[in-house]
Write a protein that binds this DNA or RNA. Structure first.
Length: 122
DNA sequence: AGCCTGACTCGGA
DNA sequence: CTCCGAGCCAGGC
């Protein structure tokens, strides 16, 4: 990768357990680059490393982000997710509440839900 | 250099 | 539920 920033993203994504998913924003935060959700998307867009389970990354709405959820890429991702046991609802939508993966570092006393709210950037 | 795009996100209408 | 605008930022032209 050109930038260590991308390496950090891929490292986080590689840690996602089978059958779980993370959102772009959470991957960015876990990698130490809060507010860089778009960078994560761009990093995956140009991804060539097959070791990275890119299909375990979806947008914050629990939808397939590729091509608006439609197209070959989206179909492939849906296929891979289903193969791992991720429950899909409707067209390219999944139950985030059941399969969302939150790294231990994210957990904070009291909250135990999601990362602190961030709007776009820092 | 500037301008446009996008595998993002969030709050509001 | 959907649609829209604003914020961010690396890449491509």
């Amino acid at each position: 990768m050109a930038a260590p920033e991308y390496e950090a993203y891929f490292r986080v994504i590689r840690r996602i357990p089978r059958g779980r998913v993370m959102t772009y924003g959470d991957v960015a935060i876990a990698a130490g680059f809060p507010g860089r959700a778009r960078r994560v998307g761009y990093a995956l867009h140009g991804l060539k490393d097959a070791r990275v389970p890119w299909w375990r990354v979806v947008n914050a709405q629990g939808r397939i982000a590729i091509d608006g959820g439609r197209g070959e890429g989206a179909e492939r991702q849906r296929d891979l997710l289903e193969a791992e046991g991720v429950e899909l609802v409707g067209e390219g939508r999944l139950r985030l509440a059941d399969c969302r993966y939150v790294p231990p570092a994210f957990r904070s006393p009291g909250a135990g839900r999601r990362a602190p709210k961030r709007r776009g950037g820092p």
